[in-house]
Amino acid sequence: MKTFRLFEIVLLLALLSLASHAGAQANLEINTPGIAAIQASMQKRHAELAPLYASGAVGLTRDGNVQLRDPSAVPLPQRAAVNGLVAAENQDRAALYREIARANNRPEWEGDIRNTFAQRWIDRAQPGWYYQTAAGAWARK
């Protein structure tokens, strides 16, 4: 009799924990003021980055950043500005990955979040844009 009850309680606990796991994994929290601010900053910068992606001057790296892959595609007088743009974008991206991990109370997920983004930036890049393959070579979409 007592054994049965214990078994039932254990079963109930197991079911409850399963249900809570399913709920916790449905979505990642991305609606925080910090994430929204980074997102807005990146959206604004994209107007300047888009032509650089299209010309192939800047490419998407395999680690979720952007990189000036072909400096010769940028006229010398503008090169410093483009370098600044790339650095600012990578700073925002690092902050974005960190903030998402933190918003979900899992700072240790930052690397996984970066890898997920790296894959999705590349998957969703426009035709003609350059990206880095897993082996590190540059390829064109």
């Binding site: 606990l13 924990s17 449905a26 990642l28 991305i30 996984d112 997920t116 983004f117």
Partner: peptide, 29 residues
């Protein structure tokens, strides 16, 4: 079971992360 609970929760939710990434990429791009 409690220990299993903690272990399962530590797994990175890859599908949820992909969805979150797509929502942010939609906005930024």
């Amino acid at each position: 079971i409690a220990a299993g609970c903690v272990t399962i929760n530590i797994y990175f939710p890859a599908a949820a992360a992909e969805k979150a990434a797509d929502r942010i990429i939609d906005e930024v791009w």
